[in-house]
Amino acid sequence: DHDVVPEDKFQETLHLKEKEGCPQAFHALLSWLLTQDSTAILDFWRVLFKDYNLERYGRLQPILDSFPKDVDLSQPRKGRKPPAVPKALVPPPRLPTKRKASEEARAAAPAALTPRGTASPGSQLKAKPPKKPESSAEQQRLPLGNGIQTMSASVQRAVAMSSGDVPGARGAVEGILIQQVFESGGSKKCIQVGGEFYTPSKFEDSGSGKNKARSSSGPKPLVRAKGAQGAAPGGGEARLGQQGSVPAPLALPSDPQLHQKNEDECAVCRDGGELICCDGCPRAFHLACLSPPLREIPSGTWRCSSCLQATVQEVQPRAEEPRPQEPPVETPLPPGLRSAGEEVRGPPGEPLAGMDTTLVYKHLPAPPSAAPLPGLDSSALHPLLCVGPEGQQNLAPGARCGVCGDGTDVLRCTHCAAAFHWRCHFPAGTSRPGTGLRCRSCSGDVTPAPVEGVLAPSPARLAPGPAKDDTASHEPALHRDDLESLLSEHTFDGILQWAIQSMARPAAPFPS
């Protein structure tokens, strides 16, 4: 592969990997390779389809078979030569091979799209000592099968071997295949498990690692696999990028399955594409389908809103127990993405979901129960707010008499603000006073009005108090039968009158 990737590009890729991570280095090298001529790309395919690569990765054979028959990708048995050289000459001794072996032994695996480039050397060096003999053996194999790289107009793939297949390693990572398949204008990513390549439709969760975000852009890794992070704060999961590491605690105790298979379609829109997988259930989501939507993949363990709600429900009964003089119970939860139609709101002032922060849900004790107040519409209280300059209440639009249902020339009671006709409430011909108009209920007259088809109010509507207090003497005590009587009149003013009279009014101040 030294004929494909020059030394300066190799060093530039290593520097970019240390600065921005393996995914960015892979993407940059792939983009550079696509700008080369067809001879360089053909050399790339020839390096990929060597015999030892085909033996190690069985899924490469179907890719090789898909090439046109007129494309010669065979390799000479006596060494490598550029395709432009007409004579089959043995190339001179390859010093770059020693360079590659020494550099890969030092860096474990470079971040390139060629056999030198995919593992994360920093994480491997940190986690190597417990498994040094086995990992050293794996390093000797890295130059042979560490990076199976493929690129063409139909298929483009980048393979990364790992030393996680050490025997006896619980939940060992089998390997990473960062794979971009450009077929019919689409893009897919796969993962390699035990020599087999699994596409998103049959993606397997190998051991402790999972394909957290099938994305090839942005600074985030394709698999949430930063070796420096180790395990999740809650004892979460091992990262795919942690090559040759000792077994780590796999999943939280509440995880239903340690080796679950995540779905390959969004649980909201039932469509495929780039998904984020939940650590607590097999569901996966688009970032845009979450509520609120996320802009980037959160670091650490992530769970959907259903799993978060289940966790909150487990903690909430203990938080609601009476604990005198104790601060509110704080339950730190990872930043969760909410699927459509589901929402768990945190306290005000918290950062938005999706940031690399930890939301704190506070379970406050329930407030003391209070008697429910009568629910009145805002339009129902409008007549009470229509007060004239002299303190006389004006008529609201649409006000109707509670007896006849007519809204023409209605009066407004100064005591309960109900609309009424003087002739309907006082049919006996009582003279109307000039000021202080009161309806039949507030004036103490319980004589029913002779209106055909309208039920008369119940005599129990009024329960006047002592006459010594004029204001308190007109406080009506309405009961269920009074409400039914008012409802039978089918008037809004009657219902409003009952609601206003049912509310307690402050006692009249004593004259000074």
Rank of each mutant, 00 (worst) to 15 (best):
Q393V: 14
P372Q: 06
G402I: 04
L483T: 03
C401L: 03
G494H: 04
M503G: 02
D377Q: 13
H363K: 15
Y361N: 09
G434W: 12
W302C: 13
R423G: 13
C269P: 03
E350K: 04
P476G: 11
A456Y: 13
G402Y: 03
G402L: 05
G391N: 06
P397K: 10
L308M: 07
E263I: 06
W422K: 05
L486G: 03
C442I: 02
H474I: 13
T408S: 10
G434A: 09
H363L: 15
R438H: 10
D481G: 03
V446C: 12
E265A: 02
L364P: 06
G244Q: 07
V312R: 12
P322M: 09
S379M: 14
C413T: 01
E274V: 13
L462M: 02
Q501Y: 02
D469P: 07
T301Y: 12
P293G: 08
A499I: 04
S379P: 06
P253V: 13
L294F: 13
G444A: 06
L252V: 10
S512P: 05
L483A: 05
Y361W: 07
E296G: 09
C278D: 07
P506K: 01
A428L: 13
A499G: 02
D481H: 05
H286R: 10
D406Y: 14
C281M: 12
A504P: 05
P365E: 10
V446D: 03
H474G: 07
S441M: 02
G336W: 09
G444V: 12
S305T: 13
A508G: 08
C277R: 08
P509K: 03
S485T: 15
E274A: 10
R440D: 08
S473N: 06
H425D: 14
P322W: 14
L395T: 07
S245T: 13
E263K: 06
F426I: 04
D469Q: 09
H421D: 03
D470L: 10
D445W: 05
C404P: 02
S299H: 09
R412K: 12
G407S: 12
P292W: 09
H415S: 02
Q309W: 15
Q497R: 01
P249S: 05
N262R: 07
R283W: 13
P292T: 07
E296P: 09
L437D: 05
L437I: 07
L395W: 14
A472G: 03
P372I: 15
W422N: 14
S379Q: 06
T491H: 01
V403Y: 13
Q392V: 06
L487A: 03
L290Y: 04
R461P: 04
L486A: 06
R270D: 05
V387Y: 06
R480C: 07
C424R: 01
P298N: 13
E320Y: 14
P367I: 07
D255T: 08
P459C: 07
A267D: 13
P427K: 09
G341R: 14
